[in-house]
């Protein structure tokens, strides 16, 4: 399958979804004008990937800040991963936050509470 690589902009995060090298990362800031449109690409990619995923998938999120419409979209991304996990695939989510960013930690805890998928909070 084709990899999805999107370079970061002042409004959108960096996306690396590379099944060949088993790297799955979303990082940076996320305040896009059209969050749904932006994350649609990620969700479509996951839908495609879930048909034939790698033996182990660790999805890493390292966000600086994001708006509330992105927060809904991120939940949709997590839901897709949760679905894969529930259907028997080995899926892990790693939520990285800046050591002194308590808000980003709290947001990670919110997601963790809402999901049934291995979800690690890691201070970096």
């Amino acid at each position: 399958m084709r990899n999805l690589i999107i370079e970061p902009t002042s409004k959108t995060p960096k996306i690396i979804l590379n099944a060949d090298v088993n790297v799955f990362e979303i990082s940076g800031r996320s305040i896009p004008e059209d969050s749904v449109g932006f994350y649609r690409k990620v969700i479509d990619w996951i839908d495609d990937y879930s048909k034939n995923p790698n033996p182990k998938t660790n999805f890493k999120f390292q966000l600086e800040y994001f708006n509330t419409s992105s927060s809904k979209c991120l939940l949709d991304v997590f839901r897709r991963l949760e679905k894969m996990y529930k259907s028997g695939h080995q899926i892990e989510i790693t939520w990285c936050y800046d050591a002194d960013d308590e808000d980003m930690k709290e947001t990670g805890e919110d997601y963790k509470a809402l999901l049934e998928v291995p979800f690690d909070l890691v201070s970096v």
Binding site: N67, T68, S69, K72, L75, D103, E106, L114
Partner: peptide, 27 residues
């Protein structure tokens, strides 16, 4: 926190998103 999680998971329209933003400001 509870209200935020509730709105985050509900299929909401624009109005709900605005509430979510305000909860975010308060939190």
């Amino acid at each position: 926190k509870v209200y935020y999680q509730e709105l985050l998971t509900s299929p909401i329209a624009e109005k709900g998103l605005s509430s979510l933003g305000m909860i975010d400001i308060a939190r």
